[in-house]
């Protein structure tokens, strides 16, 4: 895992990082969904497009299907959206959007999460890939950059809704058309409670440590 060492170095964030971070957030937010012309190209749902209609009313999933066959077609209908979403996320990542997000988050980490700023990249990465986040956390711990207590607090954040953004944008899009609210609202609630959860862990560990001393 030492190939990840460079990730903790303080390399400056390229300007493309901030720009791509803003663009990618707007892209998935639906802010441009009502726009026409050039601006509409900046919206996920618009670019995801639609399947053609069969008999002028139904998509290829038809009507009244059930069981494995319907589940298969339903799952198949989600594949293009997942590919588009992860394609855009990958581009944003190459343009340094993750590092930009980390830089913006660093000052908040100690007060809000009880973690040192150096864990910022692992934290942002864990929302994109739980595996990357977990591997980076292990490395932080092996290098002595975070304590065992901090690692347990960090784990509470990563464990609940692992790969939050990726999973929400890949599997979650299945339910976007059925929601009665904007699809960003549940995502906001998820991220909020991830932070709440790690603070519950913080309190719990604080309480346990006190008890062990006494």
């Amino acid at each position: 895992m030492s190939e990840n060492s460079h990730l903790f170095e303080d390399r400056p964030v390229r300007w493309t990082g901030y720009v791509s971070l803003i663009v990618v957030v707007l892209f998935f937010s639906g802010a441009f969904s009502e726009c026409t012309g050039l601006m509409s190209c900046l919206d996920f749902t618009v670019l995801n497009g639609s399947f053609g209609k069969i008999a002028e009313s139904f998509s290829f999933m038809g009507k009244g299907g059930s069981g494995a066959r319907h589940g298969f077609l339903f799952a198949l209908s989600l594949v293009p959206g997942i590919m588009l979403a992860l394609g855009v996320v990958e581009v944003a990542e190459r343009l340094d959007a993750l590092r930009a997000a980390q830089r913006l988050l660093t000052p908040l980490m100690r007060p809000l999460m009880g973690l040192p700023g150096i864990a910022g990249l692992a934290l942002i990465s864990s929302m994109q890939s739980s595996d990357a986040g977990a591997a980076m956390t292990r490395e932080l711990s092996e290098k002595g950059l975070i304590s065992e207590t901090e690692k347990a607090i960090f784990a509470a954040f990563q464990f609940s809704s692992g790969s939050s953004i990726t999973v929400y944008l890949s599997m979650g899009i299945a339910l976007f058309p059925y929601l009665s609210v904007s699809h960003l609202v549940p995502l906001g609630v998820i991220l909020f409670y991830k932070v709440v959860g790690m603070n519950i862990m913080r309190l719990y560990l604080h309480f346990v440590a006190k008890k062990e001393v006494a």
Binding site: S130, A134, T137, R138, K151
Partner: peptide, 8 residues
């Protein structure tokens, strides 16, 4: 995948 890998 998370707790095991991170060594919690």
């Amino acid at each position: 995948r998370i707790l095991g890998v991170a060594g919690v």
